[in-house]
Design a binder for these strands. Sequence first.
DNA 1: AATGCTATTAATAATGATTATCGATACTGA
DNA 2: TCAGTATCGATAATCATTATTAATAGCATT
Lengths: 128, 128
Amino acid sequence: MQRITEQRRVLLEELQATKRHPTADELYETVRCRLPNISLGTVYRNLDLLVRSGSIRKLDKAGGQARYDADLSEHLHVRCLHCGAIADLPDDGALKLEIPLPVIPSYAITRYRLEFEGTCPGCSAGTT
Amino acid sequence: MQRITEQRRVLLEELQATKRHPTADELYETVRCRLPNISLGTVYRNLDLLVRSGSIRKLDKAGGQARYDADLSEHLHVRCLHCGAIADLPDDGALKLEIPLPVIPSYAITRYRLEFEGTCPGCSAGTT
DNA sequence: AATGCTATTAATAATGATTATCGATACTGA
DNA sequence: TCAGTATCGATAATCATTATTAATAGCATT
């Protein structure tokens, strides 16, 4: 039985309250304002539970920290190659991508991962 | 000045000789047949050099081991969600995906990552 | 052939994000 | 109330990868 603990609820609230896509330890810092005694392990454990119950999405990345998103609507992301920040792509018509799943004999292809990469406004300002 | 050491040459040869997409430690095991004294650090270091010189491609994945590919032609991959193995998608016409890079004011989007996921023949056989 | 210079090596320690462990605590339902 | 279990905070362990380091090897110049 999955209880709705204070930690879990606050974590979800804080993630839902932001349009950024925070990492586990960014969330840890945020949540500590409301729950000063929460531990980082608890953050990771609850994020994982929330991902598995389908309440949030995990945007992971090799060699870096995973980021989390409470926006469950279909949308794509851009990741900044310099600072790692993730932004939502506006879903304004133009980007209605229809990617057909390839069919290969005896290989069950079930889904795909698509993510854009580039340089965010903040980082290109710094590079001037 | 970048030397062509025995280790670097053998590593590249072995990677070019396979159609699988081995991890660093799989390559380590393979290369050890020819160079028994090579160390895993050397494998990682040289793979990184080869990636940066554009001789091979790195197919990384959050929470797992990266895999490497010496096939530089444009092609897509499927990753098995169970065993982590990567296969090439046959580039037979049907899958000529044209993914336009989205345009967002002040965000320089330069490329995308696209990878398919599913269950490979070996793993779906085991699941029967 | 000897010298100096730098790239590379093998071995090993360190890193960093995440996960596991564990004893204590807090719910929950009979 | 009490047993059973989910969760907690604290901390140790994991695992892939990267950094460090002392030793070696290869090239260029004498």
